[in-house]
Design a protein around this nucleic acid. Sequence first.
DNA 1: CCAAAAGTGTTCACCGTACACCCATGA
DNA 2: TCATGGGTGTACGGTGAACACTTTTGG
Lengths: 228, 228
Amino acid sequence: MRAPLETFSYEYPHPAVTTDVVVFTIRDTRLSILLVKRANPPHQGCWALPGGFLDIDEDLDTCAARELQEETGISGLYLEQLYTFGATRRDPRERVISVTYYALVPQDALATPRAASDAAEVGWHTFENLPPLAFDHAQIIEMAHRRLVAKLDYSTIALQFMAESFTLSELQGVYEILLNQPLDKRNFRKRVLSLGLIEETGGLRRSGKHRPAREYRARHPRRVEIIK
Amino acid sequence: MRAPLETFSYEYPHPAVTTDVVVFTIRDTRLSILLVKRANPPHQGCWALPGGFLDIDEDLDTCAARELQEETGISGLYLEQLYTFGATRRDPRERVISVTYYALVPQDALATPRAASDAAEVGWHTFENLPPLAFDHAQIIEMAHRRLVAKLDYSTIALQFMAESFTLSELQGVYEILLNQPLDKRNFRKRVLSLGLIEETGGLRRSGKHRPAREYRARHPRRVEIIK
DNA sequence: CCAAAAGTGTTCACCGTACACCCATGA
DNA sequence: TCATGGGTGTACGGTGAACACTTTTGG
């Protein structure tokens, strides 16, 4: 168990701790993930999740948000912890424990991410067609995706993909992309409305040469609710 | 992002990393948790979760299993990662990141745990009546309990509380304790049998002056299956 | 008036729930 | 024969799934 402070720090080496974040969005009817191109070795020039080393006096959640902001310019997301990866050889430099997070962002809510910090480049990549990834980041993304799909079933997580106001068809489209199957319009509307988690804004969305759609908004925009 | 190895280790201090494990069992119709009494400061003499510092060349899962074995003599459990706690002041000595796990053990499957290593004492404590706990371990237990109860609904996790063979009444009793409510016998049996995850051993359990009960076993003893 | 997406109800099958009595055994 | 827990079936209501046509707008 824990030894006294004085002896401990010198007797045993500490591993490095990082956070990495999987940011999902839906772009052009594709589930997409935010990646940065590494400016430094190892895996220089390779794509990776935004993330980096924990400051010694910084909370884990804060670190994840800060690194995301520094490397991509994106902030204000609700980050949820996913899993902690710590295989002994996952980083060639030294022992690194990565506490990973995931987040969802609305299609249009963010300015195009901008490269910053020591990321050479930032960009969205479709989940179906990811480039080779640094470290064990492919494995991290896979787990985040499984979690996302699982949560669709029993939470309102999908609302986080939506802009402040949205139409029911747009929401249905998001579910169809994530579940990768078409849904019945009437059943979908009945179910989602009966949950009482969204409400009409009163506005209409006029988008093309057809009937305008009613606009809705989440009643509790930030909150992910569990459905039983 | 990640700096070259040589510069890094000296420029930035690394936090310590520990694992802690919440082991649940059911003893005498009470949900119980395995705790160790701390032999050393800080919180000397206080009860805490079994756990300890990560060796620099050791996987996280291995560390959790090793510390559990060293401090309590219990081994061979299926440990599932729960959450990583890293608040800056959660340990008074230095910055400590704790990767936590939880596990379930059958009522009778283990020899009474024995104190070892630097645990002064080991013992089971009922969830409803826990002693004051070291660090943020009360918070960790609370999260583990929420996860356990949530998983009852959509997985076969409760089977992990059962011995190799068990009766349906015993299994029902476990559910009743965990859900804290009585269940209908016929409905319970119908549902659990229709899932096809347990099978009769053919044996009978003779326990008292009444009709013997059929013995069952899990078809996939170690596996936690997700039910949809 | 035509094209395109929005909006709307009903039927049916299945599942979870409520509910009460007989059975096998040991004392 | 009695006390104790083991074991069994049916009826009902609610929920999820299948399914097609009318409405509103812009061009």
